[in-house]
């Protein structure tokens, strides 16, 4: 359990330092970004097929590929984890990112209805 938390926090730290996609302007954008990019990242790490139907999908996929590559390179535990462990970590990661960037965010502009 502790292990899983630590692993999530390692990926969170990587995302926060190196990525920008998690900070789109509004809550709905951030949820959409987290859902799709982290969802695809999980699939890539689990060697599952990623479906790309729209230009938006392509864009999520690009960030997902880069995130998956970085995770594999930086975190040796990725290759030694079981599929279940990895799926768990990625699910918790999504939860944590939603919290940090949306539900727990103190950014008062996230709920503005307009761009």
């Amino acid at each position: 359990m502790e292990d899983s938390k630590e692993r999530v926090s390692q990926i969170v730290d990587h995302i926060m330092k190196n990525c920008l996609w998690q900070f789109h302007s509004r809550a709905w954008d951030r949820l959409r970004q987290n859902e799709n990019i982290l969802g695809m990242t999980a699939k890539i790490l689990l060697d599952e097929k990623v479906e790309i139907k729209t230009p938006d999908d392509k864009c999520y996929w690009v960030d997902a590929v880069c995130l998956a590559d970085a995770c594999r390179k930086k975190f040796s535990w990725i290759s030694s984890s079981s599929r279940e462990e990895l799926a768990d970590v990625m699910a918790s990661l999504k939860e944590r990112m939603d919290f940090l960037t949306v539900t727990g965010s103190l950014n008062e502009e996230l709920t503005d209805k307009h761009y």
Binding site: L20, W21, F23, H24, T54, P55, D56, K58, C59, V62, D63
Partner: peptide, 8 residues
């Protein structure tokens, strides 16, 4: 429908 890719 044009995606937004934030870069550095």
């Amino acid at each position: 429908g044009i995606p937004r890719l934030d870069i550095d």
